[in-house]
Each structure stands twice: as structure tokens, then as C-alpha cells.
């Protein structure tokens, strides 16, 4: 099995100058095969080049002030999260996306996908063809399902294995 065998097509892209709220709406409107909204999308500039990737983690990170640390966040006040979210409203996708997009070749084995995702903490991995063009996305959930299927091959009717 290769990356291209488990990847899903990319339905839509974000743009760097989009306000955060528009990115939130776009992500909410695209549903994955399990029926839940996607949690991350690639970002394409006006020349059609992929320049970043934005996930719900990046949106959360944009809301948390840079000076906060686990040592300091206990001194937050009521509604601080709301206050900081309000402040983040003016930011655009380009400000908060991850710019160094890690991609994988469509012919790469699944082992490489799994390893990359775990070691780099990625939930999704854009797949490229031989020209470096993005042709799809491998999601952690799909690789996990592949592994889970093998693990549960001997599953009995009563739910034990």
C-alpha cells in the first residue's frame, strides 16, 4: 500500500488573505466520509501555489497570547479566552497558517506516512505527484483505520479478539 492508495481528494483550498472566520466556515462546510467536518485545509495563493496549511490547532494557537505559558496561564481571568478570541478576529489565514508544509510522495509506503505523522505530530499529510503538485491528502484517521482493520481481523461476534 502506498500513500496514493489511502489518500482522499482535496475539495477546497483556503487563501492567505482570508479572514479567520471565513476559514472556519469553509472547514465547517466540508464533511469527511465519516460525516464530521474536516479539521485542516491547505492554503493556496493567487498563483495556485500551495503556501501553507491551516488546522484547528493553528486557530487555537492564534487565540492564545504568545507570552502565556503553563506557569502563567493559571493567572487568566474569567472570559479571557473570549477576549483573546475577539482580538484574533482581525488576523488572516496567512498570519497563522503553518508555512513549512511537510508533504509526501504519492508512491511513498504507508510506513513512511505513519512514521512522519507520529514523529512530526501531524494529523494530515498532503500527497504530491512526481511534479510536486498536490494531488490529495492522507489523514491520520485513515491510516489508523488501516491498522485497526489488521488488528481486529480475528474479531469474534461478542466483540472480543
Amino acid at each position: 500500500m502506498k500513500a496514493r492508495d489511502v489518500m482522499s481528494p482535496i475539495e477546497d483550498y483556503l487563501a492567505p488573505d482570508m479572514p479567520i472566520c471565513e476559514a472556519v466556515i469553509r472547514m465547517r462546510n466540508i464533511k469527511r466520509h465519516h460525516g464530521l467536518p474536516i479539521k485542516g485545509m491547505p492554503v493556496k495563493n493567487e498563483k495556485g501555489k500551495v503556501v501553507g496549511i491551516l488546522s484547528i490547532k493553528d486557530i487555537m494557537r492564534a487565540v492564545i497570547p504568545s507570552y502565556l505559558s503553563p506557569d502563567l496561564s493559571m493567572f487568566s481571568w474569567e472570559h479571557m479566552l473570549e477576549q483573546m478570541t475577539d482580538r484574533a478576529k482581525d488576523k488572516v489565514v496567512g498570519d497563522i497558517m503553518v508555512q513549512d508544509v511537510i508533504t509526501i510522495d504519492g508512491d511513498a509506503p504507508l510506513m513512511v506516512c505513519a512514521d512522519l505523522m507520529i514523529k512530526k505530530g501531524l494529523q494530515r499529510l498532503p500527497v504530491t505527484d512526481e511534479n510536486g503538485t498536490i494531488i490529495g491528502m492522507v489523514y491520520m484517521r485513515d491510516i489508523y483505520n488501516f491498522i485497526a482493520d489488521i488488528l481486529t481481523k480475528g474479531e469474534k461476534a461478542n466483540g472480543t479478539c
Binding site: P65, Y67, S69, F75, W77, M80, M84
Partner: peptide
């Protein structure tokens, strides 16, 4: 001190 200062200014 700077991180605490930023926090207090925000508060």
C-alpha cells in the same frame, strides 16, 4: 518579568 507584564496589561 516581561511575560507577566504582558498578561497584566491585557488584564
Amino acid at each position: 518579568l516581561a511575560p507577566v507584564t504582558l498578561l497584566i496589561a491585557d488584564a
